[in-house]
Simulated assay, not measured.
Amino acid sequence: MIKTAEELSLFIDHTVRANETAQAKEFLARSASDRQALLLTSEYYTNLPEVSDEALLAIKPLRKRRGLGLFVLETASHHYLAISDSDEARILGEYQVEDLPAELLAHFGFKDNAAFKADCPEAATLSDLRAFTSRGHCPVCGVAEGEIHLLGCPVEICPWCDGQLTRCNCRFEQLGVEEIDEERLEMFEDLLEAKGRIPYSREQSPAYPGTSAGLDQG
């Protein structure tokens, strides 16, 4: 569960070694306005890796697909692999050591863990999340400004109702169904392309989900 910056500051006071507390709070202050960073920071401090009392110093995006991202959490002496969507985050283990479960390998397009680890660059070469988003990338799916979101990104705006594409009812209405399987998802993607998907821009702030006739009115 995501914590507020104030709650995390208290966690830092009680869990981080004294000589790194200031660094931990400095990073928290820089990251507090970024929901993705706050989710990952919350996961780190509320579920600290075993025997760790180090400050979290950086969050680095590794790979994103369909609203799900892999991140590297950096401390003074460790790098942890974490996974997160727009609602929750989880630390998987040591970066370049921990194996991914089969379903995550499939999701991110790797045939096995050997292929995944071969594709993982040294943590020092990865960009910090703040630098990544400040260059005009979607904070969730990682596409650049002007590019189309990865399907499933919660930031993408619905071209029918101007609401949040992952939460509005338009996908069901356009397909005339109540549930969507993989085949229907591909059909919906075709409908999206035909309608005209809305590229990412830094000003995007999806409205409350509505219907394809327009946003629901109170």
Rank of each mutant, 00 (worst) to 15 (best):
2 I>V: 14
3 K>S: 12
17 R>D: 02
19 N>V: 10
23 Q>Y: 10
25 K>A: 12
26 E>M: 12
28 L>D: 00
34 D>R: 13
36 Q>M: 13
37 A>L: 14
37 A>M: 10
37 A>V: 11
38 L>D: 10
38 L>I: 07
39 L>I: 03
43 E>R: 08
44 Y>W: 05
44 Y>H: 02
48 L>W: 00
50 E>R: 15
51 V>K: 14
53 D>W: 11
56 L>Q: 08
57 L>E: 07
57 L>P: 05
58 A>E: 15
61 P>E: 03
63 R>H: 13
64 K>N: 14
65 R>L: 08
67 G>M: 08
68 L>W: 01
70 L>N: 04
75 T>A: 11
76 A>K: 15
78 H>Q: 11
78 H>P: 06
81 L>P: 01
81 L>N: 05
86 S>G: 14
86 S>M: 08
87 D>Y: 14
89 A>I: 02
91 I>Y: 10
97 V>F: 13
100 L>A: 03
100 L>N: 04
103 E>Q: 14
110 F>T: 01
110 F>G: 09
111 K>P: 09
113 N>V: 04
113 N>D: 00
114 A>G: 12
114 A>C: 09
115 A>D: 07
117 K>W: 08
117 K>L: 01
118 A>R: 10
119 D>I: 07
120 C>E: 05
121 P>E: 01
123 A>D: 06
124 A>H: 10
126 L>W: 06
126 L>K: 02
126 L>T: 03
127 S>Y: 03
129 L>P: 05
131 A>T: 14
133 T>Y: 10
138 C>K: 07
138 C>N: 05
140 V>Q: 04
140 V>C: 01
141 C>M: 00
142 G>Q: 04
142 G>F: 08
143 V>G: 00
146 G>T: 01
146 G>Q: 00
147 E>W: 00
148 I>T: 07
152 G>S: 07
155 V>L: 14
156 E>S: 09
156 E>M: 08
160 W>T: 00
165 L>H: 02
166 T>Q: 10
170 C>G: 08
173 E>I: 03
174 Q>E: 10
178 E>H: 13
179 E>G: 10
179 E>I: 09
182 E>N: 07
184 R>W: 09
185 L>A: 07
189 E>R: 08
191 L>Q: 06
191 L>T: 03
192 L>R: 01
193 E>S: 11
197 R>H: 02
200 Y>R: 02
200 Y>M: 03
202 R>P: 12
204 Q>L: 15
209 P>F: 03
212 S>E: 11
214 G>M: 02
215 L>S: 13
217 Q>F: 11
218 G>A: 14
